[in-house]
Structure formats: structure tokens, C-alpha cells
Amino acid sequence: MQPSGRGYDSGVSTFSPDGRLYQVEYARESVKRGTTTVGLKYRDGVVLIVDKRISSKLVIADSIEKMYQIDDHIGITTSGLVADARQLVERARIQCQVNRMTYGDSIAVTALVKKMCDHKQSFTQYGGVRPFGTALLIAGIDNDGIHLYETDPSGAYQSYQAGAIGRGRSSVIDYFESKWKNNMTQNAAIKLGLEALSESLEDDINSDTVEIAIVNSDGYHKLDHETALKHLAKLS
């Protein structure tokens, strides 16, 4: 059987005649197989919600990490290959510390996003490497305002009012386009994010596998399980 890329998928730096990089497209498919991650801006910051969606009741949910604190004012959620995401998270944390040590100040969110995407893009341009099979939602707040970025395995990035990555992205985006409003309260944003996540799932939300984090002027903080359960209870 002839491979779908007709030989042009054997190297990451080889374009097909119709201008496609198949290895990058395969990396995007890896992201689409990942669990759904949701992010949306509200009046004072950004809400991040992840569904860890464990495959067995024997798995300890706390051992799976899809949401990370990068700096005091930045949080990241991932979808796709977890091991690839860990490498990018570690690099992002180092970039934040280098900026703090060099300039004596925290890094701007947009500057970090550009540095991370430059790194991801370099893995689509040279032989002997492969693209990172993960996408990132990067949320933060700085002197320039409130930010929510979605990054792609190709190294592209876009800023969103509300966004999602993972297998349920299309359903979540459709829900946000019809329901998202500017200047929402924090509680309203969490409720909307959970509703959008619920729309993308075939089953009911598992309260043991959902995590919620807030990035606002007080910094990054993850809600404890009891608080998350209270927000989930409002869905019914």
C-alpha cells in the first residue's frame, strides 16, 4: 500500500508538490487525539479548564498533569503528547527565569509565546527531528493586558478571546461563538467553560478528571477540588 504522503512524509523538511508538510499535519492529528482543553477571557483574567479523561479506573487522576504554572503570571495547558508537552513546559519556565535574571522583571506573555513558537518552528525546518506533537494554550496577564494564545505544532500562534485545543475543539469553539460575552465575571466564565467542555464530550463530565485554573492580577492559581465541584454542581 502506498503511504498517504506518497513519499513526501519521510522527512519533516520536504514539501509535497501541493505545498504541504505531512509531518506537521501528522503532529496536528496527534493534538486532535488529545483530551479537550478550554480557555476563555473574562473581566479580570483568564480561566483555564482541562479534562484529563483517564482510560482506566485504576489510574490515579492526580498523576496526570495537563495544566502547568510557568511563572507567577502565566499558565499553560496542553493537548497531545504529554511527554512532548513536558519538554516545552520546562523550556518555557527556563525562558521566564532567564528574563527575570537578565532584566530583573517578569517576561511579557507575548514575548514568551514568540520564543516558544520560534522553538517549535525550528523542529519543522531541519532534518533528523520531528515536530512536537502537542498544542498549547498559554494564558497570562501583564502590563499590556490579559492574554490567551493558542499555539500549533507548526510554530504558528493566534490570540483568542476564548479558545480550545484537543479532540473537542470544534464543538467548544462553536459554543463559544454563540455564548461568549465580553466583561463576564469569573464565575460566569467558569460556568461557560464547563458548559462548552460538556458539549464536546460524549459522556457526562467526570468531576475527578476536570481541573480549573485562574490567571488574574493576583497571579496563577489552581482551584482546589472542592471548589471545582461547586462549580460543576451549577451545571445541573
Score class of each variant (00 low, 15 high):
H225A: 15
Y220F: 15
R130Q: 13
H225I: 11
Q69C: 03
G19S: 05
N187T: 10
A27S: 10
L48K: 03
V89N: 00
T134S: 07
F123R: 09
D105E: 15
K32P: 11
Q97L: 14
I138D: 00
A228L: 05
S217C: 13
G140L: 01
L194M: 07
L58P: 02
G128M: 05
D51E: 08
K191I: 15
A108N: 07
G166V: 07
G75A: 14
Y175A: 07
N99L: 11
N99I: 14
S16Y: 09
K41H: 00
R93S: 02
H73N: 09
A189K: 07
N183T: 10
A189V: 04
D204N: 15
E211N: 12
E150Y: 04
Y157Q: 05
R91A: 11
S10D: 13
S79R: 04
P17A: 12
S171K: 15
K179I: 06
K234T: 13
G80I: 06
A189W: 03
G155W: 06
A162T: 13
I190N: 04
R53M: 08
T209M: 05
D208A: 09
L194V: 09
I49R: 00
Y157M: 08
A61R: 14
I214Q: 04
T102M: 05
L40W: 07
N216Y: 06
Q95E: 14
I49T: 06
G219C: 03
P3F: 09
H231C: 04
E226M: 09
Y220R: 04
M116Q: 00
G75Q: 02
T36E: 02
S171H: 15
L192T: 02
I173L: 10
Y126W: 10
K181A: 08
K234A: 14
S56P: 01
S106K: 11
L136M: 08
D152W: 09
T185E: 11
H147V: 01
N143T: 15
S122L: 09
P3V: 11
K234W: 01
G133W: 02
D144W: 10
L232I: 13
S106G: 10
A164C: 14
R43D: 13
D204Y: 13
L229T: 08
Y8P: 10
D152H: 11
A196Y: 00
E211T: 07
V109I: 10
Q2V: 11
S171V: 14
N216E: 09
S56W: 12
E65Q: 08
S236C: 15
T185L: 13
V38D: 02
V89A: 00
L201R: 12
A111N: 13
E90N: 14
T185I: 11
S198N: 15
S79E: 04
V24T: 07
G80E: 08
G7T: 08
A233D: 14
K181G: 08
E202Q: 11
Y42N: 02
I173T: 12
S4C: 12
I94G: 03
D203P: 07
Y8K: 10
D18L: 11
A135D: 06
R20G: 06
E25H: 02
E202S: 15
G219R: 03
H73K: 14
F132Y: 13
L194S: 10
E90A: 08
H225C: 11
K191T: 14
A139Q: 00
A162H: 01
V109W: 01
I205D: 03
V47I: 09
